[in-house]
Design a protein around this nucleic acid. Structure first.
Length: 163
DNA sequence: GCCAACGTTGGC
DNA sequence: GCCAACGTTGGC
């Protein structure tokens, strides 16, 4: 069982939206490191801190849980999708034409809603807490949208968010 | 394989 | 809205 932090722009896909949807495919990730975490390292049942980025303020707002094994992110070859990847479309068409197996570049897992915290734990708070200051999200210029967190960090944030 | 140029992320 | 930091692309 591992612990993660997943970022979403609050006004793009918020924790409230996840609560409403109950679960959602974590589509649109176009960063290899983030993809690798989803494809190679996540297991059903893993818990993730849900982080609102580009918000005022940004911070951790709740918890989600991995609820599927990895599968193709089909939005990558959907021309109408915001995160359309022309290369993926080309690879898919080629495989179809040549009747060879299509190996998708972009993979995802589904996340389900677990809880929204009674209060947000802001980035400022994370950075100023000696227990949490080593988190990836606290590092300068950190852009990784899916990152591992330690069990200690996860439990500690749970504690201060609900106290 | 280097690295400049570019597009994007995300804090502020 | 600005811009620093980053990841990716593509010319050479």
């Amino acid at each position: 069982m591992r612990y993660w932090l997943i970022k979403s722009e609050g006004d793009c896909y918020s924790i409230d939206q996840l609560k409403k949807d109950r679960k959602t495919p974590w589509s649109g990730v176009r960063n290899f490191q983030a993809r690798n975490f989803m494809r190679d390292a996540m297991s059903v049942g893993d818990l993730a801190l849900f982080y609102h980025s580009n918000a005022s303020p940004s911070g951790v707002v709740g918890v989600a849980r991995v609820c599927s094994t990895p599968y193709e992110d089909v939005t990558a070859r959907d021309k109408n999708d915001e995160h359309y990847d022309p290369r993926s479309y080309k690879l898919y068409e080629e495989a179809r034409k040549n009747k060879t197996e299509f190996v998708p570049v972009w993979m995802l897992v589904d996340f389900e809603f677990v809880k929204k915290y009674p209060r947000m734990v802001s980035l400022h708070e994370l950075k100023n807490d000696p227990v949490l200051k080593d988190m990836v999200v606290c590092q300068k210029g950190s852009r990784l949208s899916i990152q591992p967190v330690t069990k200690q960090e996860f439990l500690y944030i749970e504690k201060i968010a609900t106290k």
